[in-house]
Design a protein around this nucleic acid. Sequence first.
DNA 1: ACCGCTTTGGTAAGCGCTTTCCTAGCCGGA
DNA 2: TCCGGCTAGGAAAGCGCTTACCAAAGCGGT
Lengths: 384, 384
Amino acid sequence: MNADQGTSPSQPPTIYDVARVAGVSIASVSRVLNGQRNPRAETRERVLQAVAQLGFVPDQAARALSARLKEVVGVVVRRPQWYDSSAFADEDENLQFPDMINRGMEFVAQRHGFDLLIRTVDLDEPDAGRHIFGLARKSDGLILHDRVLSPEQLDRLARQVPVVTLAGAPTPTTANVHGDNYGGMRELARHLIHDHHYRTFAFLAGHEGSPDSLDRGQALADEVAASGATLLQGEQWRGSYQATGGAQAITRLIADGVALPRVIACANDQSAMGVLYALALHGIDVPGEVAVTGFDDIPVARHLRPQLTTVRQPIQALGATAFETLYSMIGRTDPGQDARGRDIALPTTLVRRESCGCTPEDRSPVFPPRAPALPADPNTRQAD
Amino acid sequence: MNADQGTSPSQPPTIYDVARVAGVSIASVSRVLNGQRNPRAETRERVLQAVAQLGFVPDQAARALSARLKEVVGVVVRRPQWYDSSAFADEDENLQFPDMINRGMEFVAQRHGFDLLIRTVDLDEPDAGRHIFGLARKSDGLILHDRVLSPEQLDRLARQVPVVTLAGAPTPTTANVHGDNYGGMRELARHLIHDHHYRTFAFLAGHEGSPDSLDRGQALADEVAASGATLLQGEQWRGSYQATGGAQAITRLIADGVALPRVIACANDQSAMGVLYALALHGIDVPGEVAVTGFDDIPVARHLRPQLTTVRQPIQALGATAFETLYSMIGRTDPGQDARGRDIALPTTLVRRESCGCTPEDRSPVFPPRAPALPADPNTRQAD
DNA sequence: ACCGCTTTGGTAAGCGCTTTCCTAGCCGGA
DNA sequence: TCCGGCTAGGAAAGCGCTTACCAAAGCGGT
């Protein structure tokens, strides 16, 4: 019964306070709280009551130091480069995809008592790497979106702390989680080629070196080649995964007088948004004159005009899987094989909407929920 | 020169390793790293070199325990209630607004070396409060979106750790940050009344007790009353800040055969999306038969059909301001007046698009960037 | 009634840092 | 040459927990 009933800020109670109130040692308090070597019922009762009375919650820094477990995982998101210098322009649009992935992570992380420490990094910054290593010392493991570290840095990092990458490539010390890029794009390509009979294509790539973009582009190229159709190539078809990148690419092509292909398959939905925008600006009808497709199926995709045909990734499941994979690596001190080195692919599905030339999907009487994306079973994970 | 050149996971180096390599005591290492009592140049050099060689980064749990500063702030987001039980349905749509706010926080947090620990809570859960108190022990302060705690809990929490609320109400121990709800809605209402000459209105509210919703509704009611127009009232005009809530409300009204007002002003953009959807479903033309407006100006707003007229909140600035406010409260042990008790309002602007009956805004040649939302000056903050 | 085994709770040693306190060495002035 | 005043670096005391390790107590079997 201490006297801080006022409004003055007071220190949170410590385990010593609880021990004193309960008339036991701090070890007993800890044991009651952590369910070790279950103490006598009466002791437990006394402690629990003191805890409730004081509203005691252990300080997690102290707990982390002692138990060598912070129950925090760091998440690194690559911050898009602005085409102008204003701090936030466009960012809002461009981070929907990672945000949804993070949501999936957080959902499963909570079941394990973990929280996410989220940090966006600007790769142009002097030493983005240092920030990531710093984040690592605040967490038990790291999940890296996209490519944010050089292979050497990644290797050094992964040797100190568990690391899972998203849309990267697995290394001997890291695991990787990604959507089935090749399969997804193949299905889309076949739809465009065999159902719509389109004959000229272009692939608007993502940023350079992105494995996702590479796989998707390759799948399209393979299908196009197999059917004897034409694929336009060239550096002018490089985007940035961002809407502005897509818009600029198209604007430039048109300005250069390049003949557009019948289909523009974009590396992701954001790019497709930009493409749609630029085409509309020039009065080019979609899908009448040019068909446009995306990849990911982010929420806006179905609100665009025309509604965007795309390949749905199980976005939240990607995040959930990344977390579960990382979780399985945390605390494992055995050199034995955990998830390290694994490459985990999640299935994708084709979503036919209007922008490929299909007729609009039916509208349901309630606002259309996105399909439930996460398996209830926390252990469901697909292996390579 | 130790021997871990293999791929085996090794422990990160500690301050003791650095001290040994540099041939100094750990105190010196700490002093060099923290810039205290600047050590002799030669010592500093030796330490710095050892740090570089080992790639030493201090463990933040230990640092936090000792320095009583975690450099982490917890962010609590209220998880929408699903109208069905599937884990994620619709969530993707409904959290854009908080995600953008968080982005603004994170941007300024980085300047101070802070990271955000983000947690969504389900208010229906048995003791959501416990989770929040737990989060508090992992951080130096908390930012609470929306209403996630009862006043009593909030008060107890705020006495232990600095707390800033978003879209709440200030208390003697907390500060609050919000958009200028009343002013924003007043401007919108005047536009609808005086420029478009509409005469019947309804306000689709957010969830019960939300100060934001209350203020917005009041502003509309005041303007409508002042002009002698009509405002439809009633429990059937309660939404949930979510798209499905809006869609369901409209569907029910139509099913009940209620005559719709000329204007439906929604408490936020998400609700407006649902309303737009439901109206389209029933073949009701917007804005021809019914005008619809939102609030917030989330990114999708301009991609809807028709493009949504709304009140823009400086979303990222809300987050940035919330962080700066919290930051000013952290470490202050003096009972003196910091930001506690302050209510900080940020200005809003009316965005006229199509859904109110205006003609579409011009399309710019590049993909339209959202207006830069954050002042460059880290100290820019608006007081009550 | 004694012995050894199994609880149960307390004592204390860390976890990896920061920071106070103190000693040793250095300087200049007398 | 000696002494007072500085400064730089080391020793050590925590920060608030977890968890050996150990002693005391309870219990059954002989």
